[in-house]
Design a protein around this nucleic acid. Sequence first.
DNA 1: GGCCAGGTGTAAA
DNA 2: TTTACACATGGC
Length: 224
Amino acid sequence: MNAQIVHDRLLDHYGPQGWWPADDAFEMMIGAILTQNTNWTNVERAIANLRDAGLLDAQAIADCDEVRLARAIRPSGYFNQKGKKLKTLAEFYLAHGGEAGIDRLPDVRRALLELHGIGPETADSILLYALHRPVFVIDAYTRRIFARLGLTPPDAPYDTLQDYFQSRLPASAPLFNEYHALIVMHAKQHCRPRPACSGCPLQQSCAYHGRAGHGSMQSAHLTA
DNA sequence: GGCCAGGTGTAAA
DNA sequence: TTTACACATGGC
């Protein structure tokens, strides 16, 4: 099992995911912040509220009262924190004249990481899904799945995991786009922290269930 | 009622 | 440098 084979099996099983679910680059960036440690269905509610309030716009967010902004994004959780983060992002977006201006920065990743509320996953999500850069996004699902497959250490730092993928795959934005989306799709169905695996025929050899070996159940899921 | 969800910033050890 | 904790809603 290797990184390319896992991708191929996921794609074969789930089909193309066509991410990111957003109408434009700015909405994509908004979603990247709102989805931090939060269920995507809650993010969809928050984005719908923003749209209804005319706040799906950088200038509107920059001008918006913090209380009103927080109220709009309430369903996505952490609404006070995320409200501040959205304002920071909107001001950054405006200062550079939109995504085209951001795309021209000499080091976009560093610039994004300097913003309050944007860490490595959010920065890389923006690079990949808004700016179409060949950057591999690491999230909790990626870490969990590949640790259970025995391919990466469970406590590996973000950059180490990112190197694992980027050194083994061609530097292709469309490939990384699909791969990350497929990882999320697969994880939601089969790789929860405590998956309900009653009836799983591979329990005895499943790494998750605490017995010997790596990846038997996970491999089965990938091939199922 | 507890766990979980496509993290990040801050402060203490 | 590592670890703990705050941030918060909604589904199951």
